[in-house]
Amino acid sequence: MTELNILSTIFASLSYMVIALFLLGVARKIYGYAATPSPLKIPTTPAPVSGGGVVIRMAREVILFESLFKGNKWTWLGGILFHVTFAVVLFRHLRYFTEPVPWLVALVAPVGILAGVGLLGAAAYLFVRRLAVDRVAYISSGADYFALILVGSLALTGLAMKFVFRTDVAMVKDFCMGIVTFSPANMPADPIFILHYLLVLTLGAYFPFSKLMHAGGIFFSPTRAQIDNPREARHVNPWADDVRVDKA
């Protein structure tokens, strides 16, 4: 086992800081979402009248982006492409963090490259949407552009590593396995890999403090997550004054 060089020491330390920041940051946000009471019963109707129904509705929302589909087909198209390809790309990256590599991860690998191309395309499409559709441009802020540029750059550097500036993949795996098993190993000193990894760290550190938290927040949206049972079960606003309720 060779000594950890300076570059790898810096990046291994950064990795642990970002992992801690990400985990605790997301947990803190989730706590905030879950602990905040909803004063009113406001599920968007027609809404499910049982808990199981809410699970199904939420699944449709999270997996298919149902309400976005009803709202705007073009945005839905870009959004679903962006998220599905991102998920496939993430899943493909498990091959760097698992040993032995599960067969499904190995099977997905070639599709993952295609997904990477799709992700870059979708990020570009959504970016152009923010610039070109004037109503959207009006409400777009720096954070909106930043998130898209960040993920787009990630896809671009990832694909560049696949097709142009190759890196030592076995060494990348040594490094990644070192991180997740708490025994850091050296990383390849290729500029493009360093850039890609730096972007990953940026994403991880930025995630809990940004609009990207919609990934967790969606599950706590009152209009989607509430059961439509205002008559069956009385909804109590926790900060309302105690009032006497006569049972009929």
Binding site: V26, Y33, A34, A35, S38
Partner: peptide, 25 residues
């Protein structure tokens, strides 16, 4: 929702997200 359910949700998410590390440990 209440503070307790907030805690439960936060811990649940933390365990879920950190599961690869826990598995490795």
């Amino acid at each position: 929702m209440s503070k307790e359910s907030g805690m439960v949700a936060a811990v649940l998410f933390l365990v879920l997200l950190a599961s690869p590390f826990i598995y490795n440990a």
